[in-house]
Amino acid sequence: MNYVVVSSIGAVFMGFFVLFVRMKAAKKPTNAKKIILPPIFMSTGAFMYVVPEFRLTPMEIGEAIIVGMLFSILLIKTSNFEIRGNDIYLKRSKAFIYILVGLLILRLILKAILSSTIDIGQLSGMFFLLAYSMIVPWRVAMYRSYRKLYKELHNQN
């Protein structure tokens, strides 16, 4: 089996894992730490760029960041919070599931197409940067929404 197939299978499992975690998270109150920590934990993946095979050209960096930020808009639009009792919860959104599955399918298609022209190491670096560029703006927007509701909730009490 080649690397593209193996990494694509891994991406599918990760996509289902994210769906599962998101569904489970909507059942419990959220807090700032749950919003902020995932991008921080994910940032350790940037150590891949120490290895020359994963390094990107300035053009590849720009493309990955722009596409990631554009995709983040979909996630931002489908991530809303609500106050229930004295806690803040992430609202469930059916659109989020479809968007996440759609992004996963798009990722697999792009990987299949681009793997014939871009080295697998660079492609991995691009997809990591794309994902990180998607998650950071999404989490920043989530944090801002959370803080707004948090202030509202604590000003009422």
Rank of each mutant, 00 (worst) to 15 (best):
Y89F: 14
L104C: 11
I61H: 07
L37V: 13
V136Y: 00
V136L: 05
M48Y: 03
G85Y: 15
S8E: 12
Q156M: 06
I135Y: 02
Y89C: 06
L123F: 00
M134D: 04
K151D: 10
V140A: 03
M48K: 05
K94G: 09
N155D: 13
Y89I: 07
P52I: 00
M23T: 06
L37D: 03
I113A: 02
F13A: 08
M126F: 12
I97N: 06
L70G: 09
S133A: 13
Y146H: 14
F47W: 05
V51W: 00
L19V: 06
I88S: 11
N80E: 14
L130H: 10
L19T: 06
E152C: 03
M23N: 13
E82N: 13
I88A: 11
A112V: 11
L149N: 12
E152R: 12
F47N: 08
A112L: 15
L106T: 14
P137E: 06
I76Y: 15
V5H: 14
S7K: 09
F47D: 08
G102A: 05
L149T: 11
Y89E: 07
T117N: 07
R92Q: 14
L110H: 05
M126K: 12
A64G: 10
V6R: 14
M59G: 07
Y146E: 15
K94P: 06
A64C: 08
I35M: 09
V67E: 07
T117D: 02
M142H: 02
I35K: 13
G45H: 06
I97T: 09
L130W: 07
K148Y: 05
V51G: 08
I109C: 12
N2H: 13
K27W: 00
S133E: 06
M14T: 13
I105V: 15
I118N: 04
A25G: 03
K28D: 00
F16W: 09
F96V: 13
I83S: 01
L56Y: 02
M14D: 10
I61L: 10
G10F: 00
L75T: 12
I40T: 03
V136K: 07
P137M: 02
F96D: 14
Y143W: 11
S133H: 03
E152K: 12
S43W: 01
Q156N: 11
I118P: 01
A46L: 13
I61P: 11
D87P: 10
S145P: 10
N157D: 13
I61G: 06
A141G: 03
F41K: 01
K94S: 10
L108S: 02
G85K: 12
I40C: 04
V136M: 03
F47C: 05
F13W: 01
I73T: 11
G121S: 10
V67Y: 00
I76K: 15
F71W: 13
Y143V: 15
S145H: 09
F128T: 02
V6T: 14
I66L: 12
Y143K: 15
Y150P: 04
R139H: 02
D119W: 04
A25V: 02
R22I: 07
I83T: 04
V5S: 15
P39S: 01
K151W: 02
F128P: 00
S8P: 07
F54E: 02
I66F: 10
S43V: 01
P39T: 01
L153Q: 11
S124N: 06
K91N: 11
Y132E: 00
I36A: 08
Y98M: 08
L100Q: 12
I120S: 04
G68E: 03
K34Q: 04
N157I: 13
P38I: 07
